[in-house]
Design a protein around this nucleic acid. Structure first.
Length: 359
DNA sequence: AAGGTGCCCAACCGCGTGTTT
DNA sequence: CAAACACGCGGTTGGGCACCT
């Protein structure tokens, strides 16, 4: 049947619909089009009225408070857009849904937060571990150690490394390093050092001015981000009432656990704090790098004969200096959406690299 | 300047549920 | 009771626009 018009509404059609509803109310939607002189189905009229023409609709950009409320409500209700809309006066479900899909979802992803579960993305953690686990031990040591001695690196490995497709891979490591505080903390736990990736050491290995410059700028961005936003990015977005647990295993050397937990420490002013605690253990058959072992030894509790290392804690206090919660991430990550295939590509690259080095 | 690309959002579609006949 | 109809919701689409190259 049909012959009924579809697609965008003209101003004339809008006027007819508004005039009719002002005079008569909408009553029966399926009867309305004929009575109002519109060549549309009732459903189309209803949608046009409820999503666009209704006088109580608030239009325009979402405020930061509205953004936060949407994220909070979504963490509680999921994709119940109409339920969410009832808590935002003047906003309609369709608009909120669109805003979520085009803006908020991406922003959460870029912050390393899963937009479905509202928890740190475990795919980041798993893929990161796979990546680190697949790196040749010498190179892993080089980028995680405080004490790099370039002369100790096997020249064959180094040569292969320099002439392989590592530029991209290293770039991805940078992104991983930047991608969340959680990842940085994992690096610390996994390597039992208090340092993040040793960018300077990596630069020595690469020996390339371009890449050194790239690293320096990334490092600056990273530092700027950390000083600007700190951990309130996390507490703002639904993590403040959750405890997060992550377990990780490295292919060669390490396994461990990591917990986020909200605490309220009156000694530190009673502010909400995130407690990061982790344990790290090695298997007895480890043949990993000397440097890693040295670092681990430093952390080892002498009275403890097991392989479990003393619990480490890193407490992050929310910064009050945060400007926009999302912008620093946007600067670092660009607009690229970090989806699953994106991360899997990184791992594929790491695996290929590993294969090349394997005896 | 023109063609390509990606983003945004209004509108559509299909489905589930409630109501009427 | 069931078939038909009405409505609301969430997922998806595609036209228009802005921005690149």
């Amino acid at each position: 049947m049909s012959g009924l018009k579809k697609g965008p509404w003209t101003p004339e059609e809008d006027q007819k619909l508004v005039d009719y509803i002002h005079k008569n109310g909408h009553g029966n939607w399926s009867a309305l089009p004929k009575l109002a002189g519109l060549n549309r189905c009732g459903k189309s009229c209803r949608l046009r009225w409820t999503n666009y023409l209704r006088p109580d609709i608030k239009r325009g950009k979402f405020s930061e408070d509205e953004e936060k409320l949407i994220v909070k409500l979504h963490s509680l209700l999921g994709n119940k857009w109409s339920a969410i809309a009832t808590r935002l006066p003047g906003r309609i479900d369709n608009e909120i849904k669109n805003y979520w899909n085009t803006h908020l979802r991406k922003k959460l992803l870029q912050m390393g937060i899963d937009p479905v579960t509202h928890r740190p993305r475990t795919d980041h953690i798993n893929l990161f571990n796979a990546l680190i686990g697949n790196l040749p031990p010498q190179l892993l040591a080089a980028i995680t150690s405080n004490y790099i001695n370039i002369n100790n690196i096997d020249m064959n490995i180094l040569t292969n490394f320099l002439f392989s497709d590592t530029a991209q891979l290293i770039h991805q490591i940078q992104l991983l390093q930047n991608s969340s505080l959680l990842v940085n903390s994992l690096i610390r736990n996994a390597t039992a050092t208090t340092s993040p990736l040793n960018i300077e050491a990596l630069s020595q290995i690469l020996g390339s001015q371009n890449q050194i410059q790239e690293y320096n700028s990334t490092l600056m961005n990273n530092q700027q981000f950390l000083s600007n936003s700190s951990s309130d990015s996390l507490t703002d977005f639904g993590l403040n009432s959750s405890n997060v647990h992550a377990e990780f295993t490295h292919a060669n050397n390490f396994s461990g656990k990591l917990d986020y937990q909200e605490i309220n420490d009156t000694k530190l002013g009673g502010d909400q704090l995130m407690r990061l605690s982790g344990t790290c253990s090695t298997s007895s058959s480890v043949t990993g790098s000397e440097n890693q072992m040295k670092n681990i030894s430093k952390m080892h509790n002498e009275n403890n004969t097991s392989d479990i290392y003393p619990k480490q804690e890193l407490i992050m206090q929310p910064s009050s200096a945060s400007t926009s919660t999302f912008e620093p991430w946007g600067q670092i990550m660009g607009d690229e959406e970090a989806n699953d295939s994106y991360w899997r590509d990184i791992i594929d690259q790491a695996s290929r690299l590993h294969d090349r080095y394997s005896p």
